[in-house]
């Protein structure tokens, strides 16, 4: 197997608060290969966005990386500061956020934003960059790209704006794209377009993608592998089909079973009792133990093993538990 584009090793993020230190990301490890889409799924507060922000050095102080390593294309990047990180962000890592308006400068024409980004990171002439800007907009499916390069962000609809953001994220030909809830603000029909676009572009270019979302449907359709997060920790990591159809972690199983499915008719939904613990009150042992139907004393005391691919962070992984 080739070296991964992104490799995260035992990453922890800490935030000191007046009630003590909280750890929104706690000992997370995963790799993303070239051309692969890794889904990060979890409920709000699971730390999925925080892990993505740590990779691109966008943690808001006082949050900081307290432990672990982040490697991008064989270079360690978790200790990079200021300029070095900024260069890397545009060149090697592209970003797509939930709200496309925040990633676009409202005062600049989108063509200028694309050319500026390319000129900063690629050794090409301005004329070449302008040509490529039009090509990039065409590639993401914006009709009349040659004219629309002169438009301002507010002149686009929500879906078109997200396409521009994707064009911007990909124009410097990064090796990794981090997409944080890229379709959550969009309507179903537009969401399908954006997902299809993201998949096509990454496959064609061999870009690695970290797709952060809470939507299991999006995960199923878009990703190759999935990492399920719970209370800052990885609950389960594996190929998407295995994880979703035969979840090994009781949390993943609960999550899948509580989603209303067409095939199950009107029966009562399965529900996981309780709610995710607040970060300042994560229980000892397995973080899921108070809500877990199978929990034993071991789960309440011993820290669960860290997971690698195809495993669940659970002392008693489920076997042959088919949900879909």
């Amino acid at each position: 197997m080739a070296d991964p584009v992104l490799s995260i090793r035992d990453l922890s993020v800490e935030i000191p608060t007046r009630h003590g230190i909280v750890r929104p990301v706690d000992g997370v490890s995963y790799d993303i290969q070239a051309g692969e889409i890794l889904g990060i799924v979890g409920e709000s507060g699971a730390g999925k966005s925080m892990a993505g922000n740590a990779v691109i050095g966008l943690l808001n102080p006082p949050a900081h990386i307290s432990k672990g390593e982040i490697w991008l294309n064989g270079q360690r990047i978790d200790h990079l500061k200021g300029d070095a990180m900024r260069r890397l962000r545009g060149k090697e890592i592209g970003m797509v956020f939930q709200d496309p308006l925040t990633s676009l400068n409202p005062l600049l024409r989108i063509g200028d934003q694309l050319t500026e980004t390319m000129l900063t990171h690629l050794p090409i002439s301005r004329a070449e960059a302008e040509k490529r800007a039009v090509a990039a907009l065409e590639e993401v499916g914006i009709p009349g790209a040659a004219e629309r390069v002169n438009s301002y962000p507010h002149e686009f609809s929500g879906g078109m704006r997200q396409r521009v953001v994707i064009a911007l994220a990909l124009c410097a030909e990064p090796s990794l794209v981090i997409a944080d809830e890229p379709t959550t603000a969009l309507d179903v029909s537009v969401q399908a377009q954006i997902i299809a676009l993201l998949r096509r572009l990454c496959r064609d270019r061999g870009t690695a993608v970290m797709l952060i979302t809470h939507d299991m449907g999006v995960i199923a359709e878009a990703t190759d592998r999935v990492a399920v997060m719970y209370a800052g920790r990885l609950a389960e990591l594996g190929p998407v089909r295995d994880v979703l159809t035969h979840p090994q972690h009781p949390y993943t199983h609960g999550l899948m079973a509580s989603t209303p499915l067409a095939s199950q008719g009107k029966r009562r939904l399965h529900q996981i009792p309780g709610a995710m613990p607040r970060l300042d009150a994560v229980p000892d042992g397995c973080a899921f133990n108070p809500r877990c139907p199978h929990a034993t004393d071991k789960c309440r005391q011993a820290p669960v093993p860290r997971v690698s691919n195809g495993q669940a962070a659970c002392w008693y992984p489920l076997v042959d538990e088919k949900v879909i």
């Binding site: 299809a196 359709e221 998407v240 089909r241 989603t259």
Partner: peptide, 12 residues
């Protein structure tokens, strides 16, 4: 267009 839980790698 709606994403489906069992739509693994579905090309819509």
């Amino acid at each position: 267009a709606a994403p489906q839980m069992d739509g693994f790698g579905r090309e819509v």
